[in-house]
């Protein structure tokens, strides 16, 4: 029975990674950049909920919505102010370095406002735990909500990309920005929308993460951010189902290696797995093999 418990906690953790990985993956696919500040938007999302619920006494669901709105605006603003001016820079390294700068900027702003000691984040999820197999197996409300949220987000995003005009515009921009512009697609607007969606998802991920692991500090987003990036690469960066598979796999590897191999070594095992995957499939599990005919 304990094995199943570990698997479920792995899937739950993996679902959070998958939601964060989506943000990385979409931004990479469409804006062709690695937004290393993405993890810190998670932390901002967590702090917004923390402030609204604990100091202002807002109901959790309202706080979560406010946090999503706040992170959406933050993400779009970061893109507009920091990344867009560099879009046509000679080196793509410039925007990567800027992203790292933004990451530290957000961490330090949080440090000034909230200090470095971790805050206790009270879970916003109030549904009771699920008891299965006559009580031998208990699944926490957080786990249920996390997995459900992940499924809803994946299905919703897939529908959005395939069924809406804005989604089609994203596909076109991810393939060829110039040709997309010739079709009448507003490339800057499409990239801004991508950041908006990715950042709103980061806020959701932040809330889910802090509800499951109830401690919040300015560095909360850093490690999950890097792991979600690994998950995105794992699954094939730029691919939505890839982000899901990568996230879940990563969560499972982490949870199972914590349980059966070594708690301290779990992160090392996660990254080692990434190296193995990349050696076998350099474009990730669902990554596109580059095929172009001229």
């Amino acid at each position: 029975m304990s094995f199943i418990t570990y698997v479920i906690s792995g899937i739950s953790l993996g679902s959070v990674y998958a939601i964060i990985a989506l943000g990385y993956s979409m931004v990479y696919g469409i804006a062709k950049m690695l937004n290393f500040a993405h993890g810190d938007v998670i932390m901002v999302g967590g702090f917004v909920v923390y402030s609204l619920t604990s100091s202002m006494g807002m109901p959790p669901i309202v706080a979560v919505v406010c946090s999503m709105i706040f992170c959406t605006i933050l993400g779009v603003a970061i893109e507009r102010i920091a990344y867009r001016p560099l879009r046509n820079a000679a080196s793509s390294l410039a925007v990567l370095i800027t992203a790292i700068g933004i990451s530290y900027f957000l961490q330090n702003i949080a440090l000034i406002i909230y200090g470095s000691s971790p805050k206790i984040f009270s879970s916003v999820i109030t549904i009771p735990p699920l008891k299965l197999a006559d009580g031998a197996l208990t699944i926490s409300g957080e786990t249920v909500v996390t997995i459900a949220a992940c499924i809803v987000i994946m299905v919703g995003l897939t529908l959005f990309i395939n069924k809406t005009k804005a989604g089609q515009a994203m596909l076109a921009v991810s393939e060829d920005r110039g040709a997309a512009s010739l079709m009448g697609i507003n490339v800057n607007g499409t990239i801004a929308l991508t950041f908006a969606i990715g950042s709103a998802l980061a806020a959701v991920a932040g809330v889910l993460l802090c509800s499951a692991y109830p401690s919040l500090s300015p560095y909360t987003g850093a490690m999950p951010g890097i792991k979600a990036f690994v998950a995105a690469v794992f699954g094939g960066i730029g691919s939505i189902p890839g982000a899901l598979i990568g996230g879940i796999l990563l969560g499972l590897i982490e949870a199972l290696s914590k349980a059966y191999i070594s708690f301290q070594l779990s992160d090392a095992i996660v990254f080692a797995a990434l190296i193995v995957v990349l050696l076998v499939r350099p474009t990730g599990i669902l990554g596109r093999q580059i095929q172009e005919k001229v």
Binding site: L171, S181, M183, K293
Partner: peptide, 30 residues
């Protein structure tokens, strides 16, 4: 650039630049 096509000017770019990972139908819809 993206507003020019709706004024009635289309551009077939050098090297075709079709959307390689979309179907022929999706390209036309685009």
């Amino acid at each position: 650039g993206h507003k020019i096509v709706s004024m009635g000017m289309a551009h077939v770019p050098e090297g075709r630049r079709v959307f390689a990972n979309l179907s022929v139908y999706q390209n036309l819809k685009m």
